[in-house]
Design a protein around this nucleic acid. Structure first.
Length: 478
RNA sequence: GGCGCGUUGGCGGAGAGGUUACGCAGGGCUCUGCAAAAGCCCGUAGACCGGUUCAAGUCCGGUACGCGCCUCCA
């Protein structure tokens, strides 16, 4: 398994730190609103990565966080529940959007049962953040300011570690814009908040730190970056193998996570591989909440599209390429999905094995082209192409010379790795099978009128028929 | 201003120094009682300008345009 590593800017062989076990951490959602399809594409990437790593023979521990405390969750919770105690309001809002999130995840084929979820406001996590910040403070990597506790990048650098492990940070590309925006009491413009003191009406957790001036009451809430540092360590230990997220998280989020997580360690590596997915664009621009040019899954389903068509659309392009979302391309993906399902339905139907192909195409050989593509930096477009080449269109026989059992195996294998849920295609009922058999009999008797009538009855049940030289095939219409 | 990425056929989107990506849409043919699907074939893609090479979408340099990050962000 090879994967592009942002840290080294190279495609690298995956070498798990523990034998046959791969630990993955994926930056999850901030639960203040519905996820948009750009968010979902990042989770489709993470889910597919986990599937591919698992099928490559590793056991996988995959952790994801919920950011359930930040500026946006706080603001929204106060709007929504103005009369409720702030922490309770926050919790309610988060619960609500976590539910929506899990629904969306399932709808686009992400297996949430394979994930270990952590919440930033979980008491264990809060405790972990308190401990880490305290230690950072004790060791001189953090300092107390007017409005909170900040991480000192200068101290981190002086300890001999690199701030800027994922991208080249120069004075020019970081300071200029930040100087003008800087409204906080930081020692350096690069420094970032580990903990923020409570403001009016905001939820807060007890927090005290002691320095030479005495004990400071800093009750408030965590900074964004510290959440991921603590949750990843609690779920996976450190260092772990793969850290995923969108490219927009490279800086500052992941850079800051690395600094926090490694300041107290001898090993400067937080995770071996940092893997980042490129964005989905709308009209050639990045989709974002702030630009208000985003679509949610509901927008897609409202137009009658299948959420799994969106998954297929995402998988059709490489995760490191920007993808321009258009309704036309979603339509194309939906058509392709329907055709894949029609092929999957063949697993319930008799097929005539063509001996010269049966040995070539099987669960194992889907593997060679398919698996090879996926294990090469998760090349899902190539893998999908190999399905078409090797499986679906090998011979005149629509089954591709596969027995129904082999099709079933192939479909299940594809599902296992791509999560397209093709195997959920239902078999037809015995009654429907009888109708098909009756029509066959009518055709043999050249009773065309009866044959056509039976076909019409099936069409009303959303089943269409194809007569091939070998036999009659059914498939479902939407 | 700094750093990085991209520019492929009607649309989306890959791999790749010499041979079909793939999908969707379109045209033709075959098959078929009809139908539909499928199969086969087709449309002479590779931003622009130079260079390297026997050979370049594919490597190198430059130009133009677009995008991302540098601020919350998948």
């Amino acid at each position: 398994m090879k994967l592009y590593n942002t840290r080294t800017r190279n495609i690298e062989q995956l070498r798990p730190l523990e034998d046959r076990h791969v630990r993955i951490y994926s930056c999850g959602p901030t639960v203040y609103d519905h996820a948009h399809i750009g968010n979902l594409s990042a989770y489709i990437f993470a889910d597919t990565l986990r599937r591919v790593v698992a099928q490559a023979g590793y056991t996988v521990t995959h952790a994801m966080n919920y950011t359930d405390v930040d500026d946006k969750t706080i603001r929204r919770s106060r709007e929504r529940y103005p009369d409720i105690e702030p922490r309770e309001a926050l919790h309610r809002l988060a619960d609500e959007y976590i539910t929506h999130f899990l629904e969306d995840m399932a709808a686009v084929g992400n297996d949430t049962s394979a994930l270990t979820f952590l919440r930033a406001t979980d008491p264990e996590v809060i405790k972990g953040m308190y401990e880490l910040i305290t230690q950072l403070h004790t060791k001189g990597f953090a300092y107390i300011a007017e409005d909170g506790v900040y991480f000192s990048i200068d101290a981190y650098r002086k300890s001999g570690k690199t701030y800027g492990q994922l991208l080249e940070l120069t004075l020019q590309n970081t300071s200029e814009a930040r100087i003008h925006n800087d409204e906080y009491d930081k020692e350096s413009v690069h420094d970032f908040a580990l903990w923020k003191k409570q403001k009016d009406g905001e939820p807060a957790w007890p927090f005290t730190l002691e320095d030479r001036d005495g004990r400071h009451d800093l009750s408030g809430r965590p900074g964004w970056h510290i959440e991921c540092s603590v949750m990843s360590r609690q779920a996976l230990g450190q260092p772990f193998d793969i850290h995923t997220g969108g490219v927009d998280l490279i800086f500052p989020h992941h850079e800051n996570e690395i600094a926090q997580s490694t300041a107290l360690e001898t090993n400067p590596v937080m995770a071996t591989i940092f893997a980042h997915n490129a964005h989905i664009l709308v009209d050639g621009k990045k989709m974002s909440k702030s630009a208000n040019n985003f679509y949610t899954l509901k927008d897609i389903t409202d137009k009658g599209y299948d959420p799994l068509a969106f998954r297929l659309l995402v998988l059709q392009s490489h995760y490191r390429s920007q993808t321009n979302f258009t309704w036309e391309s979603l339509e194309a993906a939906q058509n392709r999905l329907v055709k894949l399902r029609n092929w999957a339905a063949l697993m319930y139907q008799d097929s005539t094995p063509a001996p010269e192909h049966t040995s070539r195409i099987s669960r194992q050989t889907i593997g060679s082209a398919f698996r090879e593509a996926l294990e090469n930096d998760l090349d899902t477009p190539q893998a999908l192409a190999s399905i078409a080449d090797d499986v679906i269109s090998v011979t005149d026989d629509p089954t591709g010379g596969l027995t129904s059992q082999q099709i079933k195996d192939s479909v299940e294998f594809i599902d296992e790795v791509l999560g397209l849920r093709l195997s959920e295609v239902q078999d037809i009922t015995p009654e429907q099978k009888q109708l098909i058999a009756d029509r066959e009999a009518a055709r043999i008797a050249k009773d065309w009128q009866k044959a056509d009538e039976l076909r019409k009855r099936l069409e009303k049940q959303k089943i269409e028929l194809r007569d091939t030289p070998q036999h009659t095939i059914w498939y479902r219409t939407a």
